[in-house]
Design a protein around this nucleic acid. Structure first.
Length: 378
DNA sequence: AACAGTCTCAACCGCCTCGAG
DNA sequence: TCTCGAGGCGGTTGAGACTGT
């Protein structure tokens, strides 16, 4: 074999990077681009392992990296994704624009994991820890948002092992939004290569806004489902069977479709309270509707999904604004229409598909010009 | 002011996968 | 087909910052 080992040679430096080293690495990559890490140390005049250079660049020096406080919305997404994917930090990072897997991992280990434990939830399974083994279990949060919203507390107290959690209003996302507004500010990425260790950063308001909307979508789905269960389903104009089975098909094609926690959240089940967001009979009704698919119309559901301009205050209109009803109907239904319908998943199962579709088929794209994040289906 | 305990997170370690040879 | 290096990934560590006494 002709290849050289990555990190051979004595005298390779370890430990914290100096400003000088950072400058050398940044300068080299700006000139020659990424890649070929094995040769970078020598060419850039660094006494570092190529792997160390790559990590330094990807986790810290890369200009597009976002650093600093995680917004409540980002926290929600991390928690939801962790519930469904586990410690797949790279997977989670793909859904959080400009966050690195390392940063997410650190944040989980130092903040979110503790918060779940504090709430009496097993950070691995996201299920309640048995009260016998955890006498300090507190009242579980009413929903996911209370966990994320509490993040603002940490800005005021570091000494307490965990910030105190207060139960937010039931329309949690407004609260989250407000919290984000209060705490958000301009974040400062490290762009000059200087060591920014232990710096405290503020949140990105643009990221917060967008992610808040994503989270609000989950709420809207719950609202819609609830409304639908109250009898507002009307005559068929769109085959919900094909629509939803498309998602079911989608989720079946996933390598990992065991994301019950996340999807349960969206489908009327809150993994944090471990209780249904809807009365049991309503969930049963959901299943019944799914089983008896013929003749029902989910255009009401889709309309809600697509946006509700009259409900802007409650952030329910996000689908229309950010994702677009048309976009939804075109992109999604195209995929659906090409999907064979061979079974009749119940509605909960279909919502699983929907939530996973959102997670796995959309990417955030940052528009530097408008300083906004846009979500694109992929 | 000094010390001890706690917390944070950059960096490292080791394993895995993929692809080149 | 096998070997091995590059790159990717998740787990862990430890220096430094922070807080309480």
């Amino acid at each position: 074999m002709s290849r050289k080992p990555c990190c051979v040679g004595e005298g390779l430096k370890k430990g914290a990077w100096t400003t000088e080293e950072d400058k050398k690495l940044i300068s080299y990559i700006h000139e020659h681009g990424e890649g070929g890490w094995r040769d970078i140390p020598q060419k850039a005049g660094l006494k570092r392992c190529g792997k160390s250079c790559r990590l330094r660049w990807t986790n810290y020096l890369k200009p597009e990296i976002k650093r600093g406080e995680f917004s409540s919305e980002e926290e929600q997404i991390i928690i939801m994704l962790h519930a469904s994917r586990g410690n797949k930090w790279s997977v989670i990072a793909r859904h959080l624009p400009r966050r690195t897997d390392n940063e997410i991992k650190n944040y989980w280990n130092t903040h979110l994991k503790k918060r779940l434990v504090e709430q009496g939830l097993d950070p691995v399974t996201h299920k309640p820890i048995a009260s016998s083994s955890n006498p300090t279990v507190t009242t579980p949060p009413e929903n996911l948002h209370s966990l994320a919203a509490s993040s603002s507390d940490k800005q005021y107290s570091r000494s307490s092992s965990m910030p105190s959690l207060s139960r937010p209003p039931t329309s949690g996302f407004n609260t989250v939004s407000e919290v984000s507004e209060i705490t958000s500010n301009v974040w400062t990425p490290v762009q000059d290569g200087s060591l920014g260790c232990k710096k405290r950063f503020k949140k990105s308001s643009s990221t917060s806004r967008l992610l808040n909307k994503v989270a609000a979508k989950a709420t809207s789905i719950k609202d819609i489902l609830s409304a639908s269960m109250e009898g507002s389903l009307s005559a068929t104009t769109i085959s919900h069977t094909s629509f939803f089975n498309g998602f079911s098909e989608q989720i079946r094609s996933e390598e990992d479709n065991s994301n019950a926690s996340l999807t349960n959240t969206l489908a009327g089940f809150d993994p944090f309270s471990q209780s249904s967001l809807y009365p049991e009979h309503e969930i049963n009704a959901t299943s019944d509707l799914g089983m008896d698919a013929q003749g029902y119309d989910f255009s009401h559901f889709l309309e809600k999904l697509g946006g509700d301009n009259h409900n802007e205050e409650n952030n329910i209109n996000i689908m229309n604004v950010e994702y677009g009803h048309d976009l939804l109907m075109s992109d999604v239904s195209q995929e659906v229409s090409s999907t064979s319908v061979d079974d009749q998943d119940n509605m909960t199962g279909n919502l699983e598909g929907w939530s996973n579709y959102l997670i796995d088929h959309a990417d955030f794209i940052y528009d530097a010009e408008s300083e906004s994040l846009e979500k694109h289906f992929i």
